[in-house]
């Protein structure tokens, strides 16, 4: 999952550093993630994992690091698991 998250970040986060330079815990906002780029990351993650982020996860910290994104994605039910 982390490789797919990193791939999305590589394409859409527009960071000041390459994603390869950052640890899973590194603060993406400090690395240059802007509010607008966060929208792109969110939409691209939804495409990649076929989910939709609920309003409850529209938090700054949701997209704060690779690990935070992973934890958020793990908490979102996939379409196949929805009743």
């Amino acid at each position: 999952m982390r490789d797919r998250i990193r791939s999305v970040l590589r394409q859409h986060a527009q960071l000041a550093q390459t994603i390869e330079e950052l640890s899973d815990e590194a603060d993406l906002y400090r690395a240059g993630l802007t509010s607008h780029a966060t929208v792109n990351v969110m939409l691209a993650l939804e495409d990649e994992f076929e989910i939709e982020f609920p309003e409850s996860l529209l938090l700054r910290r949701t997209f704060g690091s690779v690990r935070a994104i992973e934890e958020a994605l793990s908490s979102v039910p996939s379409p196949s698991s929805r009743s």
Binding site: H36, N40, L43
Partner: peptide, 24 residues
């Protein structure tokens, strides 16, 4: 205050289309 790169918005519209617009 805030500042936004117009080209970034243009790219989002091209990449995500109505989904981007209707989300924001």
């Amino acid at each position: 205050t805030d500042i936004v790169d117009v080209r970034s918005v243009e790219a989002s519209i091209q990449r995500f289309g109505r989904r981007y617009l209707e989300r924001v």
